[in-house]
Simulated scan of single mutants.
Amino acid sequence: TKSAKRRLKKIGQRENRWMSDVNHRLTKTLIDHYGSNTIYALEDLTDVRFATEKSPKDQRYEIVSWAFYQFEQFLTYKANLNSSAVVKVPAKYTSQRCPKCGRIYKDNRDHELHLYTCDKCGYKSNDDRLAAMNIQFLGTLYRSGEEA
């Protein structure tokens, strides 16, 4: 009905405003905490598609709804105002590369337990933490001018 469509539109706009507010507050906190002349390394999620077909139908929207691009845009313009920079590092293998020995092996990552265990050096960590460590490492390489 017309009133139902109006209600859905109102709810959608409220969610968009909420997400924008959260992104603004997160980026402001990052800029304020780390100060000027900082390099922020973000994973380049261009053309990365989250596998929604493997998730329950009622949860698909939640998986793809966060505004990563908006977050990147907010952080970029605030970093530029603060004499800082945002670099995008390739997303390839960030959750499969061992930060200790550098081995890349897909089967070292257990998706069910969110655990990474290196078969070469024995390093163990949460796979999301591991990805964050690798993104930081790639950002450091960028800053020094080296290639990954």
Rank of each mutant, 00 (worst) to 15 (best):
K9F: 07
K9I: 12
K9N: 14
K10R: 09
I11N: 00
E15N: 14
E15A: 01
N16H: 09
W18E: 04
W18H: 11
M19L: 11
M19E: 05
S20R: 04
S20W: 03
S20P: 06
D21Y: 10
D21I: 00
V22H: 09
N23C: 10
L26K: 02
K28V: 05
K28L: 06
K28E: 05
T29F: 11
T29N: 07
L30C: 04
D32L: 06
H33T: 07
G35Y: 01
S36C: 11
N37T: 05
T38K: 01
T38C: 01
T38F: 00
I39E: 08
I39N: 02
I39K: 00
Y40R: 01
Y40V: 01
Y40H: 07
L42Q: 03
L45F: 02
T46V: 06
T46G: 05
T46L: 09
D47N: 09
D47P: 01
R49G: 07
A51H: 14
A51Q: 14
A51V: 11
A51K: 13
T52H: 04
E53P: 01
K54L: 03
S55K: 13
S55I: 09
P56G: 02
K57M: 11
D58P: 00
D58C: 08
Q59D: 04
Q59H: 04
R60P: 00
Y61I: 03
Y61W: 09
Y61T: 15
E62A: 06
E62D: 02
V64F: 11
S65D: 10
W66N: 00
W66Q: 04
W66V: 01
F68G: 04
F68L: 09
F68D: 10
F71D: 03
F71W: 02
F71H: 05
E72A: 14
Q73G: 03
L75G: 06
T76M: 11
A79E: 09
N80H: 15
N80A: 15
N82V: 05
N82Y: 06
A85V: 07
V86P: 05
V86Q: 12
K88W: 13
V89W: 08
V89I: 14
V89M: 09
V89Q: 07
P90S: 15
P90K: 15
K92R: 15
Y93S: 12
Y93I: 15
S95Q: 09
S95A: 13
Q96N: 08
Q96L: 12
R97P: 03
C98S: 07
P99M: 14
C101R: 12
